[in-house]
């Protein structure tokens, strides 16, 4: 097949499909076994320096912040991160010095809240490298190819643009239509962490919301940590198996962390903590502010419960629940 154009982006997390199968065969247990553990254990067992990591949800929505904070607490370094619309998770992981390499579909912004100060500064001063560009569909379909066990998947986006030229894709002539077609390489993150509404001790998980990219990401990641609002009996899963978004086969760790997405949203449970996000956005403009934030909210607390208490405790959590259900008005404390 003639290659018309080859993107110059670094190919992160790609494996030959037989190598990928072999890895699954030797590393993924088929046994229904208890995978519950603590946040500390999950990160120390499954997140290693130099790993290519991916965070589930959507930047500020259904993010496994408990794992994100623990990665910072355990001072992992030289991580590469999938910028698959990675926003608050990415900003704090880059700002804390854990992540220094990224493939970017959407990062460096907090949507309506404005641009990220900490992670942009790290890129602009060369401490974090953007090694490839892509688009949101471009990233999503890297995961799709990975979960299908394919080396690549064809697509009709990214063509004709610098985004395509800086991606890890290749453009070839489609043998069927004769038209140029983009080939998106598979991605197999070393580890992914996804926050769900509920799962059993084996990792069979339900998500009461849009799945975003998590159907595919959960299945292509080599190691998968689930954090969950609650752990339910296996019978709950078996009574409505069509609701299982992620099956136990692909899961390596299950960690119960109620409110584990805070300050990000958990659809149908609690809304964003805009006050907390505004505090981060305010502090993250300077190195001293970044250090102050992490000293207070990561290194200064022993557990996620202590962190939640520091953020306003029950009163705040009750407010975030009311806000999620539209019983409190919209606030924008980050707006100048």
């Amino acid at each position: 097949m003639e290659i018309l154009k080859a993107g110059k982006g670094e190919l992160l997390g790609w494996h030959d499909p037989d190598e990928a199968r072999d890895w699954v065969i030797h590393n993924k247990s088929r046994e229904l076994k208890d995978k519950t553990m603590s946040v500390r254990e999950a990160v120390s067992m499954f997140v290693h320096d130099g790993d290519f990591i991916a965070s589930g949800g959507f930047g500020h929505i259904r993010v496994s912040m408990a794992i994100v904070y623990e990665i910072i607490r355990q001072k992992r370094r030289n991580l590469a991160m999938a910028g698959k619309t990675a926003v608050h998770d990415f900003d704090v992981l880059v700002g804390s010095g854990c992540v220094n390499k990224a493939e970017v579909a959407y990062c460096f912004g907090h949507e309506l809240r404005g641009l990220s100060k900490a992670s942009r500064k790290m890129v602009e001063n060369g401490k974090c490298k953007v090694v490839a560009e892509t688009s949101n569909a471009g990233y999503q379909w890297r995961f799709l190819a990975g979960m299908m066990g394919l080396p690549f998947i064809p697509s009709r986006n990214l063509l004709g643009t610098d985004t395509g030229d800086y991606s890890s894709c290749k453009v070839v002539t489609d043998p069927f239509s004769g038209k140029p077609i983009n080939l998106i390489p598979a991605a197999y993150p070393d580890v992914a962490f996804i926050h769900v509404h509920r799962c059993d001790i084996y990792g069979n998980a339900q998500i009461d919301a849009i799945l975003v990219e998590d159907f595919e990401l959960s299945r292509c990641a080599r190691k998968l940590i689930l954090t969950t609002e609650e752990i339910v009996d296996n019978e709950v899963i078996r009574n409505e198996p069509w609701r299982t978004a992620i099956p136990f086969l692909v899961v390596d760790a299950v960690v119960k962390v109620p409110h584990g997405s805070h300050p990000c949203e958990m659809p149908g449970v609690y809304y964003y903590d805009e006050e907390h996000i505004a505090e981060w956005l305010g502090l993250s403009g300077s190195e001293a502010g970044v250090a102050e934030y992490f000293d207070k909210y990561v290194f200064g607390v022993d557990s996620f419960e202590d962190y939640l208490e520091l953020c306003g405790g029950k009163k705040k959590l009750n407010y975030l629940k009311r806000r999620e259900f539209l019983k409190e008005p919209m606030v924008a404390p980050w707006r100048k």
Partner: peptide
């Protein structure tokens, strides 16, 4: 690109929507 004056968010879904 490699030494940006100002880093912006990237494509997000924009490249896809426009394609």
């Amino acid at each position: 690109h490699d030494k940006p004056t100002s880093r912006l968010p990237g494509s997000g879904g924009a490249n896809d929507v426009a394609s």
